[in-house]
Design a protein around this nucleic acid. Structure first.
Lengths: 157, 157
DNA sequence: GAAAAAAGTTAGCCAAGGCTAAGACATTGT
DNA sequence: ACAATGTCTTAGCCTTGGCTAACTTTTTTC
């Protein structure tokens, strides 16, 4: 038996019950979707930062900062190139295509907003950095705007 | 040449520059780590909810809610069982072990806090649901407490 | 109670993202 | 200039998390 599902109850106050199925599917799909681009965004963002602060972006630096092997970086860079985000000559520094630049800029901004928001909320710097890194890929435009608004209104300085 | 790295500058105001390497590694490691448990947490959380609101948790329901095939659910459930989170007989409903129950409870609470926090921030319900689903796995205890505090202080009702 | 439908499983495929080991290329030092 | 060192790539392996197709078991329906 199906235990008489208390189904089809679009009660606006039942906020903690199961959402309707199609909505639930959309939620999980959004998460899976974010996962696909997450890593590439992290790479592109890091490459952008390295170019900006160190003048060049070497695979070795990326491997050191990401905490993964150089082989892993090499493989991922191949994917980045195949997606038209990065350009490079073998054994040379990496650089970003226009598309990669745009993605890096977007990621950089978003990261900064989330990080500043968490700090303003009262989270310590080191925790804020860790959480921002994980959260940033799952923050929609709408939430990002809410965070910006909050930071603007509450930030001392 | 290494473009004269502006290294070893622990300036507290350089908050947007590259963090020191070891800290950077820890950030990325935390994200990778979260990824490993994320899916299992989602399953356990959903199974808990299904048990609570529908009386039983069938693979078909999970597949429908997650938007994946039954085969995928079956495979993942095998993993959940091997990790001691779920118990089940073949062709029968799933249930949670004590360990699974504890994880579900934790995830449920965390999810609720994040969701309510986003709503209180002024994010619309449907967006809040999507973002909460993605964000929840990357929110530390400290940030969770900050969110609770904020919600307590700002929530109408 | 047997046929049809639904639910669950298994096998085999694929891509992503890790790893190690081995080799190719580049830079540096003497 | 060439050997040592460091950087990058390739090959091959593993696990995770998707899929389809084919099969088994359970449930429903007539």
């Amino acid at each position: 038996m199906t235990a008489s599902p208390p189904d089809s109850t679009p009660d606006p106050h039942m906020s903690d019950a199961l959402p309707p199925c199609e909505q639930h599917v959309r939620q999980y799909a959004a998460v899976r979707n974010a996962h696909e681009t997450e890593l590439l965004e992290d790479y592109v963002e890091l490459i952008g930062d390295l170019l900006k602060y160190q003048g060049e972006a070497r695979s070795a630096d990326i491997a050191a900062r990401m905490g993964v092997s150089q082989a892993t970086v090499s493989k991922t860079v191949t994917r980045l190139k195949s997606q038209g985000l990065v350009d490079s000559q073998p054994y040379r520094s990496l650089f970003l295509t226009e598309k990669g630049e745009a993605m890096a800029e977007m990621a950089r901004k978003r990261h900064a907003i989330v990080l500043q928001f968490l700090r303003t909320l009262g989270v310590s710097d080191s925790t804020a950095r860790i959480d921002a890194e994980g959260m940033e890929h799952h923050v929609s435009r709408e939430t990002l705007e809410a965070m910006e608004r909050f930071t603007r209104e509450h930030c001392r300085g």
